[in-house]
Amino acid sequence: MASGKGGTGKTTIVTNLARALALAGKIPVQVLDCDVEEPNAHLFLKPVFHEEEEVTLPVPEVDNNRCTGCGRCSEVCAFHALAVAGGKVITFPEMCHGCGGCTIACPAGAISEKPHRIGVVARGQAGRIDFAHGKIDVGVPLAPPVIRVVKKLAFKERLTLIDAPPGTSCPVVAAVKDSDFCLLVTEPTPFGLNDLRLAVGMVRELGVPFAVVINRSTLGDLRVERYCQREGIPILLKIPFDKGYAATYARGDCLVEEYPEWVTPFIGLWQEIERLVSQRARAAGN
């Protein structure tokens, strides 16, 4: 589940689809919340967490006895994570991407690497749903390494629903890449349309098949639908704006539980995705 624009309802779709499938007892479901800057899916699925793991990046540690102050490390660092002042190396771990360049470049062998914490990944269980999310520590700029750790938890043999961060840049790519299918969640406003176009460009570049869900479909105009028609993008679900739905979301409850009539549309959404994925697999086979 991705979207260019934030707040269109990615988390709503992920959590309700997971709950609907769990309620219908159809298939084992896993939810991975990859919006590691602002993870929210746990607020709706309320998992019991049983495991937490720190995510670290390897950052340089300089042995001052060996360091000659030559400055080669800061020369090769593309991220300005090392500087030489007064013949001594100063490191800025928060700038470091953990590439290991300085360690390789140091002629004196004075640099080793130590783990630097950037966030956590937590795993839990929400009824029949397997759950995991990542969280970067406040002040840490680098989301993709944490996203990659969350995605490694994906079970091969079951359905994994991924809640991606908003936008179209590197954190989203890290979340969407290698998925079998991407649902783009949008709203029928000029913002929704503009950002949907960007998101469509992004998934096309990644080569991931996709379709659209329109949330709050009654608050806006028809430009998003016309755009999808023109581009041949299937619209798999529309959820109208309703103050009752908004209140359910506000409390942190799931639509399919409060309004059971929504279970069928969500199951239908899943069947449609399955159909599109298998159609594509057949086409690729031919």
Binding site: P141, A143, P171
Partner: peptide, 10 residues
């Protein structure tokens, strides 16, 4: 500003 708390927000 951008959403989130990561690199562009910082």
């Amino acid at each position: 500003g951008p959403p989130g708390i990561g690199c562009p927000v910082i």
